[in-house]
Amino acid sequence: MLRIAVQSKGRLYDETMLLLEEAGIKLNKGKRVLLLSAKGFPVEVLFLRDDDIPQSVANGVADVGIVGENEYVEKGGQAELIKRLGFSKCRLSLAIPKDEEYNGVEWFEGKTIATSYPGILEAFLKQNKVKAELHVISGSVEIAPGIGLANAIFDIVSSGSTLVSNRLKEVEVVMNSEALLIANKKLTEEKKEVLNELLFRFAAIQEAEGKKYVLLNAPRENLNEIIRVLPGMKSPTVTPLADSEWVSIQSVIAEKHFWEIIGKLKSLGAEGILVLPIEKMIL
Rank of each mutant, 00 (worst) to 15 (best):
I4D: 02
A5N: 03
V6L: 12
V6H: 00
Q7H: 08
K9S: 10
K9T: 15
G10E: 10
R11Q: 14
T16V: 11
M17S: 08
L19I: 11
L19F: 13
I25E: 07
K26A: 11
V33Q: 09
L34V: 11
L36P: 02
S37W: 06
A38G: 01
A38V: 01
F41H: 11
F41E: 06
V45A: 04
F47G: 00
R49A: 07
D50E: 14
D51C: 02
D52E: 07
V57C: 03
V57L: 03
G60W: 10
A62G: 04
G65E: 01
Y72D: 08
V73G: 05
G76V: 11
G76I: 07
Q78P: 00
Q78A: 13
A79H: 02
L81Y: 14
I82A: 14
G86D: 11
G86C: 13
G86W: 08
F87P: 05
K89N: 08
L92A: 14
L92R: 13
A95P: 03
I96Q: 05
P97R: 00
D99K: 11
D99T: 05
E101P: 06
E101D: 14
V105M: 07
V105E: 08
E106Y: 13
E109D: 05
A123S: 15
A123R: 11
F124H: 14
L125R: 00
Q127T: 12
N128R: 08
V130T: 03
L134H: 00
L134Y: 02
I137C: 02
E142W: 01
E142C: 00
A144T: 04
A144S: 14
P145H: 00
P145M: 03
G146F: 06
I147K: 02
L149A: 15
N151I: 04
N151K: 04
D155G: 10
V157W: 05
G160K: 01
N166M: 05
N166V: 01
R167D: 15
K169S: 01
E170M: 04
V173Y: 05
N176S: 09
A179I: 06
L181G: 01
L181P: 02
N184K: 01
K186R: 10
L187D: 05
K191P: 00
N196S: 09
E197P: 12
E197D: 11
L198Y: 10
L198M: 12
R201E: 02
I205C: 05
Q206M: 12
E207D: 15
G210Y: 07
K212Q: 10
Y213A: 10
Y213F: 11
V214D: 00
L216F: 13
A218F: 04
N222R: 07
L223P: 00
L223M: 06
I226N: 01
K234C: 09
P236V: 03
V238R: 09
V238C: 10
A242Q: 11
D243K: 13
S244I: 15
S244C: 12
W246Y: 14
S248H: 11
Q250Y: 12
S251R: 10
V252C: 10
A254N: 15
E255S: 10
K256W: 06
K256I: 12
K256H: 10
H257W: 12
F258R: 12
I262L: 13
G263A: 09
K264G: 04
G269M: 07
E271A: 14
G272E: 15
L276H: 15
P277C: 06
I278N: 09
K280E: 03
M281R: 14
I282V: 09
